[in-house]
Simulated assay, not measured.
Amino acid sequence: MVYEPREDTFLLLDCLKRGFRGGVLVEVGCGKGVVSVYASNRADYVVGVDIAWEAVRLSRELARASKECLVDFVQADMLNPFRDSSADVVASNPPYLPCDYREDPLVCGGEDGVEFSARLAREAFRVLRRSGELFLVASSISNFERLLDVLRGLYASVEVAEERRLFFEKLFCLRALKP
């Protein structure tokens, strides 16, 4: 099963449209490749990563259909295969609902909804170059304050770059800058 682009995907796209400045971008949890393919028109190079082989396959199909798209897709667990200080931007619409990740890895971000995102923030810090940026989608349903604490403990600055209200929650696109 592969995550279908939804409001949170488009929030990340809008956030990148306003704040993304180029360089090497890695998208974690590329799903069907929509964000990575979009970013390939603005970045020097893009790598989309997903733990699900089906997501990588579908993303590659989208990239082939886009023709002038410089993006690679790899199957991996988060940022494990990437060297330290190898990317300018890490972007993700991670699973963020408070439930067990093993129950539904497409939407469950851990007990508080932020465990996956906190792990990703730490891995991104390692992979990002100096002054690199992390763009991360989060939800008010999760333990949002805990996620902000993790980000503030790692990054030089953290801001809510975009925000959207849905029926029963707010979605946030966070932008964190590495010192």
Rank of each mutant, 00 (worst) to 15 (best):
F10R: 01
R6K: 14
L13E: 09
D8L: 06
L25C: 01
G31K: 05
E7P: 07
E27S: 07
C15M: 11
G23E: 03
C15D: 07
C30M: 13
D8P: 10
G33S: 13
C30S: 15
G19Y: 06
E7G: 07
G23P: 07
G29H: 10
E27Y: 01
C15E: 06
F10G: 06
E7A: 09
V24F: 13
R21D: 13
D8Q: 08
L12W: 04
G29L: 12
V24D: 05
D14M: 09
R6G: 15
E4D: 15
K32C: 14
E27R: 01
C15R: 02
G29V: 11
L16H: 05
L16C: 04
F20C: 07
G31I: 06
C30I: 13
D14Y: 03
E27D: 12
L16I: 08
G22L: 09
V35A: 04
V35R: 03
G22T: 09
L16V: 04
R6N: 15
F20R: 02
L25G: 00
L16S: 03
D14P: 08
R21T: 15
E4W: 12
F10P: 02
D14W: 05
L16Y: 02
V28A: 03
V35F: 05
G23M: 06
L12C: 09
D8K: 04
R18V: 14
R18A: 15
P5A: 08
G19C: 10
L25D: 00
E27G: 03
C30N: 15
V24A: 10
G23W: 02
G33K: 12
E7T: 11
G22N: 12
F10N: 02
K32S: 14
D14R: 08
F20N: 01
K17L: 11
G29T: 12
D8W: 03
D8H: 09
L25Y: 00
L16R: 00
G29I: 10
L12M: 10
D8C: 10
V26D: 00
P5T: 06
T9P: 09
R21G: 14
C15T: 14
R21A: 12
L16P: 03
K32A: 12
V24W: 04
C30T: 15
G22A: 11
V28L: 07
L12T: 07
G23T: 08
K17C: 13
G31H: 04
L11W: 04
V26R: 00
V28D: 00
R21H: 14
R18T: 14
L13W: 05
L13T: 05
L11D: 04
V35H: 03
V28R: 01
V34W: 00
G23L: 06
V34Q: 04
L11S: 02
G31E: 10
D8S: 12
L25P: 01
L12I: 11
G22W: 09
R6H: 14
R18K: 15
G33V: 11
K17S: 14
T9I: 06
G31T: 11
L25A: 03
G33M: 10
D14A: 12
V24L: 09
V34R: 00
L25S: 01
L13G: 02
R6L: 14
K17M: 13
C30V: 14
R21C: 12
